[in-house]
Simulated scan of single mutants.
Amino acid sequence: MIDVQRLRVLRAVADHGSFSKAATALHLTPSAVSQHIAVLERSLGAQVVARSTRGVALTPAGQIMVGAAESVAAELAQAKQQVEQLSTGRAQLTVATFSSGGRHLLPGAIPRFMAARPGTLLHVREGEPEHTLPLVRQGAVDLALAYHFDGPLPLGPGPSSGLQWVSLLEDPLHVVLPEGHRLAGRESLDLAELATEPWVLGCLKTEAYLRRYAERMGFEPEVRGTTTDYFFARSLVAAGVGISLIPSITLVPAVPGVHTVPVEPPTPSRHIGVATIRRRGDQPLVAMFIQALREQALHH
């Protein structure tokens, strides 16, 4: 018999990369964490973590067991939700979203969903994908409106969780220039043409993309401003601090004093979609909310 608590400990070790950090997160001692892992390994007859001076890493057997741990956690969270629904008599759905996606997609999707399922208790949690996707795989939220750029989904630390990804829309990035800029009249721009420009960026992931592109093109971008808000970034462009790279859905509402120019192909884009656990993707409430998001995405 595999103890659920030991699976929980293993998952914490995988997430944090060390016994001591896992112990802190679980309010245990490192010795207690080590004992839980040792007992788990004896019960399985296999090593689940490889220990080294740099910390610990999952073995293939450990990766299998962490996947099982996440499945168990998600099932328990769902069971708890179902019990709560029995006591309240109302269905519940918890949706996670990143800020700009929530601002532009949820306000149209929620009324569609609620019209079809009136009385549902809807909860919304905001966070970046690297924080919300682990919540999906743990069963803490039912689905997450998320995005990624040219790499894989930002699943965070730990092994692949078997998430199901439903694409909603492509969100191409645009160059935002101050009015009167020498390139403001262009129909499109190659980012290489902007090698000498100062930049204001509204997202760390956009900055990471720009730096990867600049490295390939052989220049170092001069970043004069970083924010976590695309509207603020455009306001700084209007004030003359620099130029910016902004996703298209965040170009509304308009900011006076700026001019927007598309990026030439291959155009950098955010890939926006919905993440669920595979076995939850076909549940009625989840499926209905995804459909409402799909319909709203058609407007963009």
Score class of each variant (00 low, 15 high):
Asp3Val: 07
Val4Asp: 02
Gln5Asp: 06
Val13Ile: 05
His16Leu: 08
Ala22Phe: 11
Glu41Gln: 05
Glu41Met: 07
Arg42Ala: 05
Gly45Asp: 00
Gln47Asn: 04
Ser52Pro: 13
Ala61Arg: 14
Gly62Asp: 05
Gln63Ser: 15
Ile64Cys: 06
Ala74Arg: 15
Gln82Phe: 14
Glu84Tyr: 14
Ala91Phe: 03
Gln92His: 15
Pro107Tyr: 04
Ala109Gln: 08
Pro111Lys: 06
Arg112Glu: 03
Phe113Cys: 10
Ala116Lys: 11
Leu133His: 05
Gln138Tyr: 01
Gln138Glu: 11
Val141Pro: 11
Asp142Trp: 12
Tyr147Cys: 12
Phe149Asp: 14
Leu153Met: 11
Gly158Asp: 12
Leu163Tyr: 10
Gln164Met: 12
Val166Asn: 12
Leu168Met: 08
Glu170Lys: 09
Glu170His: 14
Pro172Trp: 11
Leu177Tyr: 10
Pro178Phe: 09
Glu187Gln: 07
Ser188Ile: 00
Asp190Met: 09
Ala195Lys: 11
Thr196Val: 07
Trp199Cys: 03
Gly202Tyr: 04
Glu207Cys: 03
Met217Asp: 00
Gly218Glu: 01
Gly218Arg: 06
Glu220Tyr: 02
Glu222Gln: 11
Thr226Cys: 12
Thr226Ile: 10
Asp229Trp: 03
Leu236Thr: 05
Gly240Cys: 03
Gly257His: 05
Thr260Asp: 00
Glu264Trp: 00
Val274Ile: 13
Arg279His: 05
Gln283Ile: 09
Met288Ser: 08
Gln291Arg: 12
Leu298Ile: 04
